[in-house]
Computed example of a mutant assay.
Amino acid sequence: MLRIISALLLAATTATATADDGPPLVSNPPERHIVVPGDTLWGISGKFLQQPWRWPEIWRLNKEQVANPHRIYPGDVVVLDLSQGSPQLKLAKPLTPARLQPQVYSEPVRSSIPSIPTNVIEPFISRPLIVEAGDLDKAPRILAAEESRVLIGAGDLAFVKGMQHDDIEKWQIFRPGKPLKDPENGQVIAHEAFFLGDARLIQGGDPAVVKVVRAKEEITRGDRLVPTPPQTIITYAPHRPDSEIAARVMSIYGGLNEAAAGSVVSLNRGSRDGLEIGHVLALFRKRNAADHDQDGRRTSTALPEQRYALVFVFRVFERVAYALVMESSRPVIVGDAARNP
């Protein structure tokens, strides 16, 4: 298999390079790294670069490649080459050529290394999440369960009213969730759909019959079904937005009050504002300190804004985007600003 990554890993900067020249190397970078399952491009780059999200700049990807970066695989060896004067990252070549012998080759399918951890964001890639007000009201709904059950679980049959697509086999089950309010003005700009499970069409008609193949939560009458969308693999490389983005953290997925590295947050900006998959944004917090003047009256003083986290945008809707917190020095809270890094 042709190792297409060789065209990707190009010139890196020196350890003393300035921000204008590109991201500097870390102190005492390793000579090589053997790629293992579970690695990410962000993580591998962090072994060599002080700012790992900027690896597309170091490896000089053009705009088309940023939208669909080359891949590397477990077993590949990334080496730091200093022989050309400026550091380069490249794949190590085999020490000796393989001996050619007549034989039948069987090469297993290898999973490429993703840009960021996919185990956290996979559920958010394959599920709609955001719906306009009233959209789920038009979707097929569960009318009843077999044997008059109230709750439906994995392996149970359910009768569905309003299903007009007998040619679609795989469905997802949702329940209308909470409204998402813009922290800047309190306006409801979208609704989250609460994912309940997966179902498979057994028999068409009205009502139709489906079998619940997976139940993440308890399913009951009135819950809605939407066709399962094709899964999209996130291969976009991290990069700065082309235009200035001024967003705010709108919610923390799961109803939590605070988020940390590895958490998913929603932002009050989307595709219409210029956000796209792969954008990296920095989080900032601005707060006030209580004080008293000479007369003892309570006052409030604005403190300098502090940058404390980076997020990777991995799913974008028209007015809302979801981002994964990649690194953070303090808890993320609703209302914090998200802007170009």
Score class of each variant (00 low, 15 high):
208 A>N: 07
209 V>L: 10
210 V>K: 00
213 V>P: 00
215 A>H: 12
216 K>T: 01
216 K>S: 00
217 E>L: 11
218 E>K: 13
219 I>R: 04
222 G>F: 01
222 G>S: 03
225 L>P: 13
226 V>L: 15
227 P>F: 08
229 P>E: 10
231 Q>D: 09
233 I>Y: 15
234 I>Y: 14
235 T>F: 02
235 T>E: 10
235 T>A: 13
235 T>R: 15
236 Y>D: 15
237 A>V: 09
238 P>I: 02
239 H>E: 14
240 R>A: 09
241 P>F: 15
241 P>V: 13
243 S>F: 09
247 A>Y: 00
249 V>R: 06
250 M>N: 05
251 S>Y: 03
259 A>E: 10
259 A>M: 09
260 A>H: 04
260 A>C: 04
261 A>K: 03
263 S>I: 04
263 S>F: 00
265 V>F: 02
265 V>R: 01
267 L>R: 10
268 N>C: 11
269 R>G: 10
271 S>I: 08
273 D>E: 11
273 D>Q: 11
273 D>K: 09
275 L>Y: 11
276 E>Q: 12
277 I>N: 08
277 I>G: 15
277 I>H: 05
278 G>A: 13
279 H>D: 03
280 V>D: 11
281 L>I: 07
281 L>G: 02
282 A>E: 05
283 L>F: 12
283 L>P: 04
284 F>D: 05
286 K>S: 14
289 A>R: 04
289 A>I: 08
293 D>T: 02
293 D>P: 01
296 G>W: 02
297 R>Q: 07
299 T>H: 05
303 L>G: 04
303 L>T: 09
307 R>D: 10
309 A>R: 03
309 A>T: 04
310 L>S: 01
311 V>I: 15
314 F>T: 14
314 F>V: 12
319 R>K: 15
319 R>Q: 14
321 A>D: 00
322 Y>M: 14
322 Y>N: 12
325 V>T: 01
328 S>I: 10
328 S>N: 03
328 S>R: 03
329 S>H: 13
329 S>K: 15
329 S>I: 14
330 R>N: 08
331 P>E: 08
331 P>I: 06
